[in-house]
């Protein structure tokens, strides 16, 4: 318990990095996931194939490999750099890798949502002269989003926990790394371990409750 109190400021600083990563990745993965699902349901075969190919490859690659690729492949080999400051650079490499990865799950959740929207909605949209992308944006996706708020919440919770493997992209500031670093000094400390678990639960549990509540509130009556 003394270890937890002694290292609490470091651990908290680390945990705030998890929160930061989560918020940025949530925004990017939602946007990219929406783009991907639009490709996957589009009438253009090339877009459909590209979307399907991307999702199948990235979704089935272990996250640590995606992150390692963004650090070793993109950054070290191809010279992609977000900042001269190594910790800032690796922060954005994690954001890149984790967003690219999480977007595939957002895409598939949304695609399940699109399947809940009756065919007639799209037909009515086309019949009044909306183009495919207009009907997707104004009619199909808004209903699809509402149908999968709870599953999207699960995707976001998984993404938040995934920020703890950021070390795979060389990012050394988040809480799981700080914990391991601390254990090197103190030996394994159960209170520290439990403290971090509790911090994550305080973050993710409300998301689960909130998305469940929102899903009921925004459900489309048919």
């Amino acid at each position: 318990m003394n270890d937890l109190i002694k290292y609490a400021p470091d651990l908290l600083a680390g945990f705030l990095k998890n929160v930061q990563l989560s918020l940025v990745c949530a925004v990017f993965s939602m946007i990219l996931g929406t783009v991907l699902v639009s490709m996957r349901v589009s009438p253009t075969p090339v877009l459909r194939a590209a979307g399907t190919g991307y999702v199948n490859i990235v979704r089935n690659t272990p996250l640590t490999l995606v992150l390692a690729f963004s650090a070793l492949g993109l950054s070290d080999t191809l010279g992609v750099s977000f900042s001269d400051e190594p910790s800032t650079n690796s922060f954005w490499l994690v954001v890149l890798g984790l967003s690219l990865y999480t977007a595939t799950f957002v895409c598939e959740a949304l695609r399940a949502g699109i399947n809940t929207v009756p065919m007639g909605q799209a037909e009515a949209a086309r019949a009044i002269g909306l183009t495919f992308f207009q009907s997707l944006r104004m009619i199909i996706l808004p209903q699809a989003f509402r149908a999968v708020i709870a599953p999207l919440g699960s995707v976001m919770i998984a993404m938040i926990k995934n920020t703890t493997v950021a070390i795979a992209a060389g990012y050394l500031a988040e809480s799981a790394f700080v914990m391991k670093d601390t254990f090197d000094d103190t030996g394994v400390s159960i209170p520290i371990f439990v403290g971090i678990v509790v911090a994550f639960m305080l973050f993710t549990l409300p998301i689960g409750f909130f998305t469940g509540w929102l899903a009921n509130r925004l459900a489309v009556a048919r």
């Binding site: 009756p118 007639g120 009515a124 009044i128 002269g129 009619i139 509402r146 048919r222």
Partner: peptide
């Protein structure tokens, strides 16, 4: 899309946009 905007269609199952109000259904087009 332009052609369809000139041809109204009424379906057996109504197909009103379920997440929009009645007035929004009529003003969207």
């Amino acid at each position: 899309a332009g052609l369809r905007s000139e041809v109204g269609m009424v379906f057996q199952s109504f197909n009103l946009f379920a997440h929009k109000t009645i007035l929004e259904n009529v003003t969207l087009g």
